[in-house]
Design a protein around this nucleic acid. Sequence first.
DNA 1: CCTTGACCTCGACCTAAGTCGAAGTTGTTG
DNA 2: CAACAACTTCGACTTAGGTCGAGGTCAAGG
Lengths: 153, 153
Amino acid sequence: MSKLPEMLTIGQVAERSGVPHTALRFYEERGLIASERTAGNQRRYPRSVLRRLAFIRTAQRVGLSLEDVHDALATLPDNRTPTKSDWSRLSTTWHAELDARIDALIRLRDRLTSCIGCGCLSLRSCFLHNFEDEQASDGPGAPKLKPASEGGT
Amino acid sequence: MSKLPEMLTIGQVAERSGVPHTALRFYEERGLIASERTAGNQRRYPRSVLRRLAFIRTAQRVGLSLEDVHDALATLPDNRTPTKSDWSRLSTTWHAELDARIDALIRLRDRLTSCIGCGCLSLRSCFLHNFEDEQASDGPGAPKLKPASEGGT
DNA sequence: CCTTGACCTCGACCTAAGTCGAAGTTGTTG
DNA sequence: CAACAACTTCGACTTAGGTCGAGGTCAAGG
C-alpha cells in the first residue's frame, strides 16, 4: 500500500464513481456528500466518498429519493470512515424499507398473475376489477400522491 | 343492478379513483386516459377509466413512469372495455418488468444483509467496500442515469 | 331567471434531480 | 512563465409529474 492518494479531486471521483461532476456538486449542495477545500478553493474528497456515492446510486436505483438517502446518510459520521456499526445501523433501516418494497412488488405481480390466470372473462371478481374500490376506500384526500416513495417517515 | 350511470363526470372520477381532477386532465393530455365531451364541452368518462386509473396509479407506485404506462396502455383499446386477452397481453409484459425489479431489490437487500452479517470489520471484502469498483467498471459515460427506470425499452 | 357549484382552458408555478454554459481561477507541465 | 486542462460559481434550462389560480361556461334547483 504505497500510492493510494489520500484525497481525490472532483474529476477523479467522477471517473471512479461514474457519477458526473455536476451531480457531485449537486449532491454536495444537498448535503449528501462533503468535501474539504484546497488553498485555491478546489474540492478534495476523501476516498470514503466513493462508498457513500455507491450507496446513494444504489438507493436511487431502487427508487428511493435523495431526501430519503440524505436522512439515512445523516446517521453516518461526516468526518471519519464509517465503521461496521455505522453501516449496520443504516443497513437495518434500509433492510426494512427494501423488504416493504419487495413485498409490495411481489403482491402486485401475484395479483396480476392470478387475475389473468383465473379465467374470469368478466373480470368480475378479480383484482383488476376490484382494484378501483380498494383505491376509492382510501377515501378522498387520503392519497397525497407520493407514488414512488411511501417509505419515508 | 339498476342505476350505475354510464358516464362519469370528472369530479365523480376524481372522487371514486382518488386521483385529483387536475391530474385527470393531465393524464388525458398525456394520452393515458380519454373522455368524451358533452354538448357543453364537459368531460364524460366511461366507467372503464377507473380500471385504467387503478392500473396507472399502481404502476406508478412501483416506480414506473407515466411514459412506460402510456406505452403499456397503448396496447389496450380506447373505445371498448378491455377483454381478458387485452389485459392478458399487457399483464405478460408487466410481469417480466415486475420480476426484474423484484429481483434487483432482492439482490440489493441480500448483499446488504450479508455484508453486515459477515463481520468484516474492515469492510475489505464486502459488498459495500467493493461496490465502488463495480460501479466504476461500468465505465465512464456508461451510466446515463435513469436511476429508477432501467426497464424501459 | 338567477344563483351556485361543478366544469372549462390556459398559463404560471412547483419539486426533484439534475444538466449546460459562461466567465473566471488553479494547478501542472513543458 | 505560458499554456491548458481541470477546477470554481452562478444562473438558466430541462424533464417528469403534477398544482394553482384567473376568468369564463354549464347544469340543476328554487
